[in-house]
Design a binder for these strands. Structure first.
Length: 684
DNA sequence: CGTCCTCGAGTTCC
DNA sequence: CTCGAGGACG
């Protein structure tokens, strides 16, 4: 629990930084940090103010909407359908089901009763809010939100948008004030950016920026060239007549459609409960990428317009509506500590431990900082506020340090000069720092994990957790001991049953036979990954049927001979040469021999030259066969597979949900084929 | 010696 | 997935 004094300090910082970014974005049309990151800061501020209401000041960003209107446009005030002044306000944000429950509870407390007349749910489009004033069915004026009170008169620009009717149809009222969002479709956004690129001009960051920029163009001709869309989300009014005509929010949508103004009526729902709202939120998230325009959440408001009016305004947002946003693609949090991990190769990797934060639907607490150089590049100190995102929507990464958020208590991080696991000296090797001890406990343990991993011995059911326990209990000391494990020894451990012990021992025995390539890979020799292990195996296959044979075979190569092998240069040769000359490793191979490890003859030769000379790269998920199986098939037919796309690639095989390789292949003009076509190629 | 291709290694969360 | 660096090649 945060005390009031630190809360006050934090609030001051947050306000200063948020205001700076808002000014840059709204007045200078420039993007300092992403909207998601800004939202995260605002959310933290909002929560702190909720906890300490006495710390709320009138200048807090939570207490205002929009920014100052630009000088160039005429400033206009916002009025409703009845000519009454009606501020254009924004919505508060919710990011979780808990936030939504809190919101409804606050509303009901205010109303003094339960609310059960339905919650209208609409998509929350990511564009620019606009008010349209119609008189006698004709578009008279259009305004941006501005600061909520005073907006900008952008009528000339709005008139160029085809999606907005200049003349209403049907049974429209004499005066009608409509609010909605101008948006840019993703397709149109791509088209504009392609054009910008061709002209050598700057690329826009997102559709919302382009939509906003287009509306606030002084030259309407520019706006006209950008085909903007418009979706209305409300009619503004507050008199008895208004409530009679439109008792519910949904009625407004239906009326708007009948007047010829587009809404997302067909995509919205009236939810009877929060549960239904949550379901809608999930459904929309699943469909998000398929929509033609960007959305960043859903808008939930009470369907009963009288209640909506009664709810009034809290701060500068309506009490009876809220934006339930999707979990952001990036967020801000605080680095509380930097841990140092020691890997299989002895490399020391700094890892940031952060205050938990939700990014893309999962809670992030750790992010690798890779190496000391990366920390320096970021300028990161312990205690800093940072922006985290997920590379490829998966791997957490710190993208930016918000140095303006520093309070003076941040600490510099220094790479330890002694290994945190065994205290050996740390030496620098390129950008990496390594523990100098080859028998460092961490290295040993990581080597064991590697030994049983999928590309190596592939012993299922024997993961890091179990290995740790075997090590702790003294059941094993090195990898070779794994093959001598007895069912009884395992079953004797606490929390291990007869059955699970049997399964593990059986699995281990089944894996005693292994291909040469896998065996070489499993040894964890520096610089020898799957590919190099394959090449090395091809070179000596046929002569090797046991670990000891391998030792003999490799000892037959000197440094020069090793380098004659394809893709092996001085560094890799040195690594192999050195490994097989170490007494410890020699003993280890002998021990594996005695434990009954047998090396199979690789049946690696191609059975056909159907695909000879062709290089394949695979991406995404295949339906009928695993990626590993597909690769094997390709190799059998004489083709080659690789992990990265280049102009030497002949085919990119794209399954569902392909990664970044897809775009790269497109850019390089590499032929992209689907699974069906691959199957046709490998059949026959 | 410089430039391009690749491979290896490290990493997170469910 | 991304970065760094090893290796091939001109």
């Amino acid at each position: 629990m945060i005390d009031k004094k630190s809360a006050r300090e934090r609030i001051e910082h947050l306000k200063k930084v948020i205001n700076k970014y808002r000014y840059e974005r709204l007045v200078l049309d420039k993007e300092g940090i992403s909207p998601d990151a800004e939202d995260a800061l605002k959310k933290e501020l909002f929560d702190l103010e909720l906890k300490f209401p006495e710390l709320v000041t009138p200048d807090s960003p939570t207490q205002r909407v929009g920014g100052k209107p630009l000088k160039e446009f005429k400033k206009v005030r916002h009025f409703d359908s009845e000519g009454k002044e009606a501020r254009m306000i924004s919505l508060n944000d919710a990011f979780s089901e808990k936030d939504m429950e809190d919101w409804l509870e606050r509303l009901e407390n205010y109303l003094g009763r339960k609310y059960d007349k339905g919650l209208y749910c609409d998509l929350k489009m990511d564009g620019l809010a606009i008010q349209l004033d119609y008189e006698d069915g004709l578009l008279k004026q259009a305004e941006t939100r501005g600061d909520g009170l005073w907006g900008e008169d952008v009528t000339q620009n709005i008139r160029t948008i085809e999606a907005i009717p200049l003349k209403l149809v049907g049974d429209f009222p004499k005066k009608l004030v409509v609010r909605g969002e101008t948006v840019l479709t993703k397709k149109e956004f791509d088209r504009i950016n392609r054009e910008q690129n061709k002209k050598g001009e700057k690329i826009f960051a997102n559709p919302r920026n382009v939509a906003a920029g287009s509306i606030r163009q002084l030259d309407p001709a520019v706006t006209a060239k950008r085909r903007l869309g418009f979706y209305a989300y409300g009619i503004v009014g507050s008199t008895e007549g208004y409530f009679k005509k439109y008792p519910t929010h949904r009625d407004e949508y239906e009326a708007l459609e009948s007047y010829g103004i587009k809404t997302n009526l067909a995509k919205g729902i009236v939810a009877a409960s929060l549960q239904e709202v949550f379901k809608f939120h999930k459904d929309v998230l699943a469909k998000r990428d398929g929509l033609e325009f960007e959305i960043d959440g859903i808008v939930v408001s009470v369907n009963d317009n009288r209640v909506r009016e009664t709810g009034g305004i809290i701060g500068k947002a309506p009490r009876a509506a809220i934006a339930y946003k999707f979990s952001p693609r990036e967020a801000t949090t605080i680095v509380e500590e930097i841990k140092v991990q020691v890997g299989r190769t002895g490399a020391l990797t700094p890892v940031a431990v952060m205050r938990p934060v939700n990014v893309g639907g999962v809670t992030i607490t750790h992010a690798s900082l890779h190496n000391a150089d990366e920390i320096e590049r970021l300028g990161l100190k312990i205690g800093d506020t940072v922006i985290v995102s997920r590379a490829g929507d998966v791997i957490p990464q710190i993208t930016k340090v918000l140095k303006e958020m520093r309070g003076g208590k941040e600490r510099e991080f220094k790479m330890p000069s002694r290994c945190p696991v065994d205290g050996s000296k740390v030496v620098r090797d390129g950008v990496a720092y390594r523990c100098s001890s080859k028998i460092c406990g961490a290295r040993h343990r990581e080597s064991l994990y590697h030994f049983v991993s999928r590309g190596a011995f592939n012993i299922e059911g024997l993961g890091p957790k179990i290995i740790d326990r075997f090590l702790e209990e003294g059941l094993i000391v090195d990898a070779a001991d794994i093959f001598s494990l007895q069912k009884g020894d395992v079953a004797a451990l606490p929390r291990f049953g007869e059955k699970s012990a049997e399964n593990i021992v059986n699995e281990i025995n089944e894996r005693k036979k292994i291909t040469l390539a896998r065996f070489i890979y499993s040894l964890g020799i520096l610089h020898i990954g799957e590919e190099t292990a394959n090449l090395l195996a091809q070179e000596i296959s046929g002569k090797v049927s046991s670990p000891k044979d391998l030792l003999r075979a490799i000892r037959g190569f000197n440094l020069e001979k090793l380098q004659e092998i394809q893709d092996i240069g001085p560094k890799v040769a040195e690594s192999i040469f050195g490994w097989f000359r170490e007494k410890r490793n020699e003993k280890f191979l002998e021990k594996l021999d005695e434990a009954g490890v047998v090396i199979l003859r690789d049946k690696m030769q191609a059975t056909s030259d159907k695909l000879a000379g062709k290089t394949f790269v695979l991406t995404g998920t295949l339906e009928s066969l695993s990626r590993e199986a597909a690769k094997e098939k390709i190799r059998e037919l004489g083709g080659t597979t690789s992990e990265s796309v280049s102009k030497n690639t002949d085919y990119l095989v794209a399954g569902s949900e392909p990664g970044s390789k897809y775009e790269k292949a497109e850019k390089l003009g590499v032929k992209i084929i689907g699974e069906a076509e691959l199957l046709r190629l490998i059949k026959q």
